[in-house]
């Protein structure tokens, strides 16, 4: 290689280096850009906002039980808007907290009854008698509930 050729080659390499040093230009690195799309998922990367983060954190922290309480309330025909107000709005308002308190009282009442029937069953069993008490049926009968099928009978 002659000296002139070497100089030209060095100049060409320098020119190329300058060209590829602009990494923000997708035309320079089409394959890398395509790869970035694939690895970033469907939506690609994006800068989050504080509002979006708070919304995510709120949903994450929400108790599964609380969500279930709301589901049951909706199943019972209680409708909510975003603020958990009952509809139709002009008639009556409540908060999810009040509704949870109501649910808690019902659960507590149920547990008391279960404990009472279980105690009764054990008392019979210690005397060698099988009382054949179906606690579930007895509790439901006590409450007078018959409208909805219980979970495993669906």
């Amino acid at each position: 290689m002659k000296n002139d050729d070497v100089k030209k080659e060095i100049e060409r390499m320098a020119e190329n280096r300058k060209h590829y040093s602009n990494t923000n230009n997708p035309i320079d690195f089409p394959k890398i850009q395509a790869g970035a799309d694939i690895h970033a998922g469907d939506g690609g990367y994006s800068i989050g906002t504080q509002e979006k983060y708070e919304e995510f954190a709120k949903a994450r922290n929400k108790s599964l039980g609380k969500m279930r309480i709301r589901e049951l309330a909706e199943q019972a025909g209680l409708e909510f808007d975003n603020d958990l107000a009952l509809e139709p709005e002009p008639i009556y308002y409540t908060t999810q907290k009040d509704l949870e308190k109501f649910a808690e009282l019902i659960v507590r009442d149920t547990l008391d009854q279960v404990a009472e029937f279980s105690r009764l069953t054990k008392a019979y069993q210690t005397q060698g008698i099988d009382p054949e008490i179906d606690v579930t049926k007895e509790v439901l009968k006590n409450f007078g509930f018959t409208r909805f099928p219980i979970g495993d009978e669906k």
Partner: peptide, 25 residues
């Protein structure tokens, strides 16, 4: 009572009790 939604609350209570019994089982 004023809201006229007592049946909905009764249904809600029933679902909670039955869920309790199901989880208990």
């Amino acid at each position: 009572v004023e809201g006229g939604i007592i049946n909905e609350f009764k249904a809600f209570a029933e679902l909670i009790v039955k869920e309790c019994m199901y989880v208990g089982r």
